[in-house]
């Protein structure tokens, strides 16, 4: 079992924090504790959750990814551009037009490719993850601007929009998507050899290498998955707005790191869980939603979020020191 008492405690702390917030918000606002608002919160967190699942894997190996927000924008822009305008291959004089499915797959491929690049930079070129992904942050932002010319790509049609605005069996489609992703990645981290190896590499990289684990391949895989999930998040954002904004996802990497940390995953790697990150996203989502319903200024929301991050990490550190 990967969960020890300490991790139980960390998850417990997040759960208590979430419960306290739910009760407090319910008492303070009549419109908070309703099924509609519940689904609303789930839909609102779906983008951050998609990013944060990938971020959890990366942080579990002891890395970090600052480029997910930029990859989100690039993937969304590529998918939207291919769908709306297709692509002209000059030397052949051909114009390729993309279907909805084709553009979705392309968006996901672009995200994965950017993640793969991060992984190769971290392993083959031995760049610190902070630096490698900071570079990708700039590269992806620049490419997005080049691709869109700095203008939003709008009018993508209702079938593409279904990813972001559709409702299936009373539940928004983005919630179905991220719910599915949570299921897949919880199983991946807890039940597979790959998942166990991710924890081992983050827990002790040298020991993992000496035990014969393919450390480099594991790292490349987690960064690629991080890029893939950022691509998914980009599709959701673009579909929801019916528009690919060149500046989409600005600062999202910080929200996703915050969710992972609040969820009890250690920034030094080896300790944490995808379920913890789900709780972390919920806490941030409930906080934003509740404060909005209470008419608290969005500026104050940021201040409160900052203190929640500090408190979460401080409590985690203290429980570690108790040993």
């Amino acid at each position: 079992m990967l969960e020890n008492k300490r991790e139980h405690l960390a998850k417990f702390q997040s759960l208590i924090a979430l419960a306290v917030m739910l009760i407090a918000m319910s008492l303070l606002s009549d419109s908070f504790f309703t099924p509609e608002n519940g689904l609303n919160i789930l839909r609102q967190i779906s983008v951050n959750l998609s990013l944060s699942i990938g971020m959890t894997l990366i942080i579990l190996t002891g890395g970090i990814d600052l480029s997910v927000g930029a990859i989100l924008a690039l993937s969304g822009a590529v998918a939207a551009g291919l769908l709306k305008n297709g692509i002209v291959i000059e030397p052949l004089g051909v114009k390729l037009q993309f279907t909805v499915i084709g553009s979705i797959v392309s968006g996901l491929l672009v995200g994965s490719a950017a993640g793969l690049f991060n992984g190769i930079a971290v392993t083959r070129f031995k760049l610190p993850p902070f630096v490698a992904t900071l570079g990708m942050f700039s590269i992806a932002r620049g490419l997005t601007m080049l691709w869109t010319g700095g203008f939003p790509v709008t009018g993508l049609g209702s079938s593409f929009g279904y990813i972001g605005t559709g409702v299936l069996l009373g539940i928004p489609v983005p919630v179905w998507i991220t719910g599915g992703l949570v299921g897949v990645f919880v199983a991946l981290t807890r039940k597979t050899r790959f998942g166990r190896h991710v924890y081992a590499v983050g827990g002790n990289e040298r020991a993992s290498l000496l035990t014969g684990l393919p450390v480099d391949r594991i790292k490349i895989a987690v960064y690629t998955l991080g890029g893939l999930l950022a691509g998914m998040a980009g599709l959701i954002v673009t579909a929801r707005l019916d528009s690919a904004q060149p500046n989409a996802g600005l600062g999202y990497e910080l929200d996703s790191i915050a969710a992972v940390v609040i969820g009890g995953t250690s920034l030094s790697g080896g300790r944490g869980s995808v379920m913890g990150t789900v709780l972390g996203c919920l806490i941030i989502g409930v906080l934003n939603n509740g404060l909005f319903l209470l008419n608290v200024s969005p500026f104050w929301q940021q201040v409160v979020k900052g203190f929640v991050i500090l408190a979460a990490v401080a409590v985690d550190r203290m429980s570690q020191r108790d040993r």
Binding site: L2, H197, A200, G202, G203, N204, A207, S208, G270, R271
Partner: peptide, 24 residues
């Protein structure tokens, strides 16, 4: 290896997880 904690064990893992790591 010579240095158990540094090179041999994943300290954040359990006895079973350490014992099975090479033969999972």
């Amino acid at each position: 290896p010579e240095d158990r904690k540094h090179d041999g064990l994943v300290l954040s893992m359990s006895v079973a997880e350490n014992a099975s790591l090479a033969s999972l």
